[in-house]
Design a protein around this nucleic acid. Structure first.
Lengths: 332, 332
DNA sequence: TCATTTTCACGTAACGTTTCATGAACCATT
DNA sequence: AATGGTTCATGAAACGTTACGTGAAAATGA
């Protein structure tokens, strides 16, 4: 029994295989090496159960095979799903992820950006609502959902088309008078287009619509008041509601139940995100589905592509509608 | 303008401050250094905007300030919440997290364990249902929810007490005839004790109970059949149901609605986990709440404590009951 | 067969830290 | 004033890689 105290190094492998250090390095990195040498090195690696030390590797080469993911939290379904898919996309490429859950707090975000710098990450994927985040010059950065300026690519769902689709669906399902509900601070920039798209869809279909946008505080109480105002003789004047997120839709559904409105008979509700319980095929409400795994894949691909010819400033991925019990079943 | 091409190193700081390399290292690591030297070094660090290179640090010192979190996925609420809180607990201690989302796939788990070895992580926190996972000898490991043998500490909720508490609550709320529902493969080991605790609670309170445990397949259909069997003249013979997870409770609630049973008037339902929508104070159903943030804190604390006197084999943290709309409001 | 090119393993010099033996400077004691 | 003891910045060695210049051996051409 030799000194198995510390993990074997390339030097050990070289000695075992009777070759030079550099040769082992080449084999490990898949560079061309003569057949007999290669075989002997591979055997030695097997025998010693050798693994490269990524810290030595990261120190010498500049590439660390690590990217940082800056995200508000890991708990909201859309974010959780993003973390999951990005992790998968990275794993496929043998990359590691430095998870930076920021609570959307600017201080924490900056702290994490610094940590990322310390860790010499090869790039950053960020979902942040902080416009004046200081990113180091050389570090590749891909934004999700929020444009960070012309020099930084942004990957997002086609929010405008999503809003439009929601309006069209409600029209198709027989609605005449619809509402758009939104909590102000919860979404900025890109997702703003959901509203614009919805408006556009309503106009083109001749739907009468009303917008209700709230700024934080106790939004759900205010929404309840808003809906109550629109009830005459127990009957809600809206027959369709588009909520800016599934989460909001969930709360609104509870409110509607409280107000004795039947969903979808009296009023149909469409959310946005495509939230599902894990492992379930059913959506928690009828919704506009964001292509999360495509977003994840696109971010990683864009970030890691070696010789980027041009960085496209904005990439919109197509959304789709999914039935989730809160709209009338489609006739077909 | 000097060569600002590459990030400044300790050498640059040393030159700027007019001190030796080792002195800078000491200042950075908070070791005692004479006051005038210390001040000059700190100024130089400020001026150059220096950050340690964690790869060089990790290579030389063995400590990498990184731990791996092995978890089935990041999407189920309990797991997502765990990721969130563990991340927070690590950040507080200036530690990084290597996220290993395994899909409970043994191959992937092993792959990640290897990756963790490559990355010289200081320890691993693991939630895995794979009993014969090969963990390297020297690496500290803390298990969540599933005991991995006598040499490895396991942190878990007090599942037995939780089951008992559920039974007692149902008894307090006037139930006479209750059921326990569970999907077999979904939970092993520790959470098994939920059943035992519930049984114990029922016996001590003289509650009549029935157990229904399913093995995968299409469990929800089978649960529906089971419940349908227990309906006589539109009335369910159970007046209380304890579901092994909130997720299951959610599905059962949908089933009950389909069967025209009112919750909580006809039948009360209690879940397990304490699932909430992000930012919401309301639970998605009445439930036994797992102390997620305490579990997270305990794991990290246990893993990182320097000179561990004894590694306790099993640590049960207390659970609590929370009202979430699917039980009768407590009289008090 | 000899000269010329090509191939490719070799070995060494970094990469940016930490650690430790070294010795200079200071203080206290006789 | 001289000695012994203590403090503490110094500078070099090492950590495990990668990359590059070197030269020996093999392959080509005349």
């Amino acid at each position: 029994m030799k000194k198995e105290l510390s993990a074997p190094t390339m030097k050990d492998v070289a000695r075992e295989a009777g070759v030079a250090l550099g040769t082992v390095s080449k084999v490990v990195n898949g560079l061309p090496v003569g057949e007999p040498y290669k075989r002997r090195v591979e055997e030695a690696i097997q025998k010693l159960n050798y693994q490269v030390n990524s810290y030595a590797q990261g120190l010498k080469a500049s590439r660390t095979h690590t990217i940082a993911l800056l995200i508000p939290n890991t708990v909201e379904p859309f974010f959780a799903s993003l973390v999951y898919h990005i992790n998968l996309a990275l794993l496929r490429r043998k990359y590691r992820m430095l998870l930076c859950s920021t609570d959307s707090d600017p201080g924490m975000e900056q702290e994490y950006i610094d940590m990322a710098r310390q860790n010499k990450v090869d790039g950053i994927i960020g979902l942040t609502y902080n416009p004046n985040l200081k990113i180091e010059e050389g570090t590749p950065f891909i934004a999700i959902d929020r444009s960070m300026g012309p020099k930084i690519s942004c990957v997002t769902s086609d929010n405008f088309a999503g809003g439009q689709l929601a309006a069209e669906k409600l029209a198709d399902l027989g609605c005449k008078n619809v509402a758009f509900l939104r909590i102000g601070s919860s979404l900025t920039n890109e997702p703003n287009k959901r509203k614009a798209g919805f408006e556009n869809g309503c106009l083109s279909r001749g739907l009468h619509y009303e917008m209700k946008i709230l700024n934080d505080g106790d939004p759900y109480e205010e929404f309840e008041a808003f809906l109550t105002e629109h009830i005459q003789d127990g009957k809600l004047s809206f027959d369709g509601i588009f909520c800016v997120t599934d989460h909001l839709a969930y709360e609104i559904l509870k409110t509607l139940r409280r107000l004795n409105q039947r969903v979808p008979e009296d009023v149909q509700v469409i959310g946005f995100d495509g939230t599902r319980h894990f492992g379930s095929l059913e959506y928690t409400c009828s919704t506009i589905v964001q292509p999360v795994s495509e977003i994840a894949e696109m971010c990683v691909e864009l970030l890691l592509q070696e010789n980027a010819p041009v960085k496209p400033p904005l990439i919109c991925l197509p959304v789709s509608y999914a039935y989730g019990g809160t709209t009338l079943e489609e006739r077909n």
